[in-house]
């Protein structure tokens, strides 16, 4: 039985928690328009992965460190020079990738295969990767569910939240560090290059059906589960990389549903 294999069990659990991360964090990232920042963190973290290989330690540990540093730099830049933040993010994006390649190149011996970090492979998820995903998912659920109304207020209108006496800056730091953790937790599932898609496509699909934040998060989680599980099953069946198949299914579903909604609207108009 295929489900008796450890790597398949790990993959199924990873899909479950990846769906939660994508649905919750993806919706918040999309609604706060922090997509460029998320892409930057994902790519910059490659420098940390390369450093992990060079030092002979678990690559996800320095990757998480680099992601946290980059996100804090970005927050500071946003606060001080909002106009330039986007440009500097682009630089950090490329610098992280370059450093990753340099560190891997400096490592003595045969260079390691970085494909699973770049494009993801849900079947290579280890127990340690899984623990990180579980920790990330539970942390996000705890952080955002306890004070959901406060988060909603801050994410919607920071100025008003400040006026209400809320510590907006502290909340923003927690939100940005959560983005870094979400990105690192998802890297082994879909890879650095495709992380952005798994964080944005399910929320965009959910946007077609609901105009409120909580239903949108729940709906996005449902779509993320649907696409991750079906993408994973399809990749297994036709023997293609799982990360790429998950994203393909995800974007395809978004396109089909967008088209269906438009057709329904125009049919309603005609009748």
């Amino acid at each position: 039985m295929i489900f008796s294999y450890q790597f398949v069990q790990n993959a199924i659990l990873a899909a479950l928690f990846a769906g939660i991360i994508s649905g919750l964090m993806g919706t918040l990232i999309t609604e706060k328009h922090r997509i460029m920042m998320t892409g930057g963190i994902a790519h910059a973290s490659f420098g940390g992965i390369g450093l992990g290989y060079l030092l002979g330690i678990e690559p996800m540990v320095p990757a998480l460190g680099v992601a946290a540093i980059v996100v804090l730099i970005m927050k500071r830049l946003e606060d001080r020079f909002s106009q330039r933040a986007d440009t500097i993010m682009g630089m950090l994006w490329a610098l992280g990738m370059a450093l990753g390649m340099i560190f891997v190149g400096m490592r003595p011996g045969y260079p390691p295969d970085m494909t699973s970090y770049l494009f993801g492979d849900i079947l290579t998820i280890s127990r340690r990767d899984l623990m990180l995903m579980i920790f990330a998912s539970l942390s996000f659920l705890l952080i955002f569910s306890i004070r959901f109304e406060t988060w909603k207020m801050i994410l919607f209108d920071e100025e008003h939240a400040k006026l209400m006496g809320l510590p907006v800056d502290r909340y923003k730091t927690i939100f940005y560090l959560s983005i870094a953790l979400a990105v690192i937790a998802l890297i082994k599932v879909v890879g650095i290059i495709l992380t952005l898609a798994i964080l944005t496509t399910p929320p965009m699909t959910a946007q077609l059906f609901t105009k409120r934040l909580l239903p949108r998060i729940l709906c996005a989680t449902g779509f993320a589960w649907l696409t991750i599980f079906s993408g994973f099953a399809l990749s297994f069946k036709i023997e293609v990389p799982s990360g790429a198949m998950i994203i393909f299914v995800s974007v395809l579903l978004f396109m089909i549903l967008t088209l269906a909604k438009k057709m329904k609207k125009s049919l309603a108009k005609d009748s």
Binding site: E31, E149, M153, F156, D157, H160, R212
Partner: peptide, 23 residues
């Protein structure tokens, strides 16, 4: 000062002016 594409209803926005944060 807010992003008008944010998924929040008129009633929710008005309620966000309340000094009490829990429902």
């Amino acid at each position: 000062t807010f992003d008008d594409s944010f998924p929040i209803t008129v009633r929710e926005v008005i309620l966000s002016g309340s000094p009490y944060l829990s429902r």
